[in-house]
Nucleic acid binder design. Structure first.
Length: 886
DNA sequence: AATGTCACG
DNA sequence: ACGTACGTGACATTT
């Protein structure tokens, strides 16, 4: 097989990579403040292309300096270009190192550009009968393409390329690769700052070349041209055209000192590359490198750590800890309700006790330490530890420091549930991430004793070392109270709710499911009939082809991969063809079936007929919880059909009921409080229907005027819009009015609620000034994009600046209520148990006879969780199932 | 692993 | 002129 040669135009690819990632210029910075976006992009390109080409020879050519034979010929060549941004030029030396670490030579030659080096080598390769791939960001190089030379030009970004061989050049430009030079001669090149023939662009140039072949050919026949402006320009600019042609011609005989045999591709130099990735902070690439090689190498980089392996005979070792201990129980699966245990570590001050034998935790010696109220516990993920130990019949008491929770409060942005990664974020590198120890996907494996124990000891040590630092940082941010009185106690409340679980009646789900399946197959047949063929309705691609190509329905919206078939689009097409309505119905049923019937059935524990969700306490950017495995925060309610799913959620005892209370309009009440807007506050103090009240104001209605349904609906959308960080476009889209009308609404709203307007201006200003915003309890969200040059990114950050204090404070309030609730239920001696939190709603189960008590107690706890300038309002309901609690 | 869609607050 | 509401998770399909 022919040898393969890879020639890369280093400068142009680096430029492309830099500008492709420029919007995120602030995201790609390593610890030393070096920008790394272009390096990152270059690396990505290299990985892909090396994998694709698998070259025998490879080189990356760079431009040597400002002056070349072209500037000698034409002093203004590439003149007027703005200087290379310093953010890019500082990256060039690293790109060269990166290339070398990939086992590829770099080369530059005084007086010549990278193009010429590539052209010369391409010619040599072609003559030797090799297959060559040229990678560049510059279309001019397509002139080099032959049957044996493919020119890959990077498209948006650097990872996608368009491959030019002579056939593709012909398809695209209708000329040969050699004629590309003539085309450039006629057109000139604005970016290289040389002119061609006046008023001749791509279209005209191609037309002329198709007829006369070359620039020379054109001028040989210039006399035969009909009198025209174009002819005048051609004659006038003849010299320029020939000059431009020369400038555009790549020199294929540059005096380079290297031959193909000097540029053999050596393959990746793993050690060098690891060192470089480390320096650059390229974590994902580090992880990607061969797992074993890396873990060996990283292992060597970690400090040696001592530990004692616990067994039945040395359990008295734990007696040395009487003040505080650091504890970590290792679980390979993220679901701590069900995961197996692979080991544990406990200790402090570099005295680490480790073991794989989980049963040891249940020994009197260890159990008494864990359950002690005098010995403080430092952990990573208190809730996971609490639930895990509960499975072993151990009650974990006196939790004090949670590295995960503290880290989340300090900065919600770069968070992870991996101890190693979190430690790295805080500058502590002497611990590995789980992924680099265990590998991932198919490679996942639990290592042998020594490696596992070292990993565990390093983890415990990381918690220990970061403890003091993070506690100080919380103090600096005035977040100590948030940590101690809200998040840490809440993690305990949540662990109880998760452990309790909620009873789900599988029979109810199954009988619903079989009805749905029946209806689904009817709908399916109907849709196939209307379509005239069978296809996969669940595939947006296939559905799009049927609707928009076969049936010719009007295309309303496109996605980046094809036609959009989302609800808002289909709804507009409803009247055009009956199939649309059927597809919508089919989708609705299939969603219920797959996500809520089958999905829920899969996660019911066979031992207790319950589902045990996990609340993620350190995930959202606003301070809300999220719920997974299963997600119990998105069980259907809006449409009756879906709402019936809630009939399967039952109390776990005979004679009990489901009881549910929710905050009414909590976000708008928080808005009224935070903005201090008198008009908005008044509406809540008077307990008015808030959307009607807003309607009265924005439509300028009198106190006795009727508010019609549509006015209220629109006002409701405006209220939502305000909370989300409104834009006229968004509002218009949402309620189907013109942008102009939406703008009017917003303006009127701001006139009527000047305090809200003031708040928006203030908070966006504050975010710009300090780089973050805060909630009522000093929960903090950093907004790095607030300084972005990119309009979209910046606007998004500005909207979050105003939304986060609202959504986040509402989250704070219900969290406080939950902590108080757990105590209040206990103090009142009730059997009632809190089961679920759905952002502004709490769901309980209780004996029927406790319901009257709950109806007073629960709202009282909830509405007094905090004291705002407006009252909080709570509404309750109860019934035999969650469905009936409405 | 990414994308589109749709369920919730 | 830019291109849009805020916060989530699960599923099926496609790459």
């Amino acid at each position: 097989m022919a040898k393969k040669v890879l020639l890369i135009d280093g400068n142009s690819v680096a430029f492309r990579a830099f500008f492709a990632l420029f919007q995120q210029v602030d995201k790609f910075v390593n610890q030393d403040g070096l920008h790394t976006g272009a390096i990152f992009g270059f690396n990505k390109m290299l990985d892909i292309i090396l994998d694709e080409v698998k070259p025998d020879y490879a080189i990356v050519a760079f431009d040597a300096g400002k002056t070349t034979f072209r500037t000698e010929m034409f002093p203004d060549y590439k003149g007027g270009r703005s200087k290379t941004p310093s953010e890019l030029s500082e990256q060039m030396p690293f790109i060269k190192k990166l290339v070398q670490a990939h086992g590829i030579k770099t080369y530059e030659l005084p007086n010549y550009e990278a193009d010429d080096i590539i052209g010369t080598l391409a010619k040599e390769a072609d003559n030797s009968g090799y297959m060559t791939t040229v990678v560049t960001g510059d279309r001019d190089l397509t002139q080099l393409s032959t049957d044996n030379v493919t020119v890959s030009v990077t498209k948006k970004g650097v990872t996608e390329v368009e491959n030019y061989d002579p056939v593709h050049v012909m398809e695209k430009y209708e000329i040969t690769p050699a004629q590309i030079i003539d085309m450039k001669g006629l057109m000139g090149d604005a970016s290289d700052n040389y002119p061609g023939v006046t008023k001749v662009g791509e279209k005209t140039a191609i037309k002329l070349l198709k007829q006369y072949g070359t620039i020379e050919g054109i001028y040989e026949h210039i006399d035969e041209f009909k009198q025209s402006k174009m002819k005048e320009h051609l004659i006038e600019d003849q010299e320029l055209a020939f000059q431009a042609k020369k400038l555009a011609t790549i020199n294929q005989d540059a005096p380079i000192e290297i031959k193909l045999s000097d540029i053999e591709f050596k393959g990746i130099q793993t050690e060098e590359l690891i060192e470089l990735y480390r320096q650059l902070d390229f974590k994902s690439y580090l992880a990607k490198l061969d797992g074993e090689q890396i873990s060996l190498d990283l292992d060597a980089a970690l400090s040696e750590i001592e530990f004692t392996v616990l067994n039945q005979d040395n359990l008295n070792e734990v007696n040395q800890f009487n003040d505080e201990i650091t504890l970590y129980v290792e679980m390979p699966d993220s679901n701590y309700h069900t995961s197996e245990f692979t080991g544990f570590v406990m200790g402090n001050n570099s005295h680490w006790l480790v073991s794989r034998d989980i049963d040891l935790l249940q020994s009197d010696e260890i159990k008494s330490v864990l359950e002690s109220n005098d010995i403080k516990k430092n952990v990573f993920n208190a809730k996971a530890m609490t639930v895990a130990l509960n499975r072993l019949g151990i009650k974990l008491n006196n939790l004090d420091f949670d590295l995960l929770l503290a880290s989340y409060l300090l900065d919600t942005n770069d968070n992870s549930d991996d101890l190693g990664q979190v430690a790295h974020e805080h500058g502590f590198m002497d611990v590995m991430s789980d992924e680099s120890v265990y590998g991932k996907g198919a490679k996942f494996a639990i290592p042998a004793d020594q490696e596992l124990f070292e990993h565990l000891a390093h983890k415990a040590n990381a918690i220990d070392v970061l403890h003091e630092k993070l506690v100080k940082e919380l103090e600096t941010n005035e977040q100590t109270a948030l940590y101690r009185t809200i998040e840490l106690p809440l993690s305990n409340v949540l662990s109880k709710m998760e452990i309790r679980g909620i009873h789900v009646n599988a029979d109810t789900l199954e009988s619903m499911g079989s009805k749905l399946i029946e209806r689904m197959s009817e709908m399916k047949q109907l849709i196939y009939q209307e379509a005239g063929e069978e296809f996969n309705i669940n595939s947006p691609k296939q559905l799009g082809e049927i609707l928009f190509e076969k049936m010719g329905l009007p295309v309303i919206k496109k996605t980046k991969t094809g036609y959009s078939t989302a609800v808002d689009v289909l709804e507009k097409l409803r009247a055009d063809a009956p199939i649309v309505d059927n597809v919508l119905q089919y989708r609705q049923i299939s969603k219920l079936q797959s996500t809520y019937i089958e999905g829920l059935l899969k996660v019911i524990h066979s031992t207790d007929q319950k589902v045990h969700t996990r609340y993620l306490q350190t995930l959202t950017q606003t301070g809300r919880l999220s719920s997974v495995d299963p997600n119990l925060q998105n069980i259907p309610i809006r449409l009756e059909e879906g709402r019936k799913i809630r009939q399967a959620f039952e109390p776990s005892h005979e004679g009990w009921e489901i009881f549910s209370s929710d905050y009414s309009q909590i976000e708008l009440r928080v808005l009224a409080h935070i903005t201090g807007d008198k008009n908005l506050q008044e509406a809540f103090i008077e307990d008015e229907d808030i959307h009607a009240s807003t309607a009265r104001r924005i439509f300028k209605l009198g106190p006795n005027d009727e508010i019609n349904r549509d006015q209220r609906r629109q006002a409701k959308a405006v209220n939502f819009g305000i909370v989300y960080g409104i834009s006229d476009f968004g509002l218009a889209q949402n309620i189907g009015i013109t942008r102009k009308q939406a703008k009017m609404f917003i303006e009127t709203y701001f006139e009527e609620f000047p305090g809200v307007k003031q708040y928006i201006d203030d908070i966006v200003g504050l975010a710009h000034q300090q780089g973050y915003v805060e909630t009522l309890t000093n929960r903090r969200r950093y907004l790095p994009d607030i300084h972005a040059k990119n309009f979209n990114l910046r606007s998004f950050a500005e909207r979050t600046a105003m939304n986060t204090p609202i959504q986040g404070s509402a989250a704070d309030i219900i969290k406080i209520a939950m902590i108080k609730m757990e105590d209040a239920l206990k103090d009142a001696g009730l059997q009632a148990k809190m089961l679920l939190q759905i952002h502004d709603e709490l769901v309980f189960e209780a004996p029927a006879e406790e319901i009257p008590t709950l109806e007073k107690l629960v709202p009282r706890i909830m509405d007094s969780a905090v004291s705002l300038d407006v009252p909080l309002k709570v509404e309750s309901a109860h019934g035999k199932t969650w469905y009936e609690a409405k």
